[in-house]
Design a protein around this nucleic acid. Sequence first.
DNA 1: GCTTCATATTTTAAACGTAAAATGTTTGCG
DNA 2: CGCAAACATTTTACGTTTAAAATATGAAGC
Lengths: 158, 158
Amino acid sequence: MTEAVTTTLNHETRLHEDDHHSIKLWLRLLTCSSLVETRLRGALREEFDTTLPRFDFLAQLERVPDGLTMGELSRRLMVSGGNISGISAQLVREGLVDRSPVPENRRMFMVKLTPKGRRAFAKMAQQHEEWVIGLLGHLSRDEADQLMHLLERVKQGL
Amino acid sequence: MTEAVTTTLNHETRLHEDDHHSIKLWLRLLTCSSLVETRLRGALREEFDTTLPRFDFLAQLERVPDGLTMGELSRRLMVSGGNISGISAQLVREGLVDRSPVPENRRMFMVKLTPKGRRAFAKMAQQHEEWVIGLLGHLSRDEADQLMHLLERVKQGL
DNA sequence: GCTTCATATTTTAAACGTAAAATGTTTGCG
DNA sequence: CGCAAACATTTTACGTTTAAAATATGAAGC
């Protein structure tokens, strides 16, 4: 079973004709992000045999050469601390990140990319961007700007 | 990267200053739908002790009195078939849905709401709509229309 | 009737996610 | 100092999700 997403159907089929604007909007938002996420997940698995959470983990580290603590990673990735422990254990095992105690505070660990991790992420990030452009790049510059702005408005209201 | 400094971190912290439009757009889309999803999930658990996937599952059935097959549910909800098997087993066990073999094609099962399921969903759906309005309702009619249209354009390109 | 291929669903294994308890460390305060 | 509270992380137990393999049925051609 490798399906789940096919031709036309999606969350919006949940609606009756007369349902309200906010619900419609929410379902369309959900449809769009689910579709993009599903495709990115599949491509990452196919091409690099990795997952979205792991990609995100590396992406956070990539922009902070000095590294991040477990707790900071947890906050930035918006997932629980226990989850960070697990994912970082994987990535350490694979040699993509380094996890070493912080001398000044022995409760903490500093996590950073290894050179190998940096190389691996660079490759993935480039492909990733191309995939995203392939998925969203058909919007005109103007449409993209508008959408960006409207989503910012949505975010504000949350 | 304004948000990186604040306490309200989100997916967009993944970005460098000079990253490209499509990626920015995708991360903002993801941020918005994640935020809404998280809140709805929490509210559903708190108020009705249920989950978003189960609510969505019932919502799909509610608008199709004759029921849907497992495969159709999988396509509409955009989740894997294995997942549908699991969720439907739960809901059958709780008496909210009925799942019976299709005589004409013995590979399939037809799933429909039970009266109990219909009553339970009706209660939840009203609350759910109020929550969504609370989350997205601050947009003007005009903004909502524009956003709706732009997301439709995104969907088309996928 | 076979064989082959497609379809519908279930099962399985692994990744991911959370919450809560456990462990070890630091901080603050009487 | 000594002790309690806060903090950072790990561990444990459990639920969800996916991809992939397995199972079962149907359809089409010879």
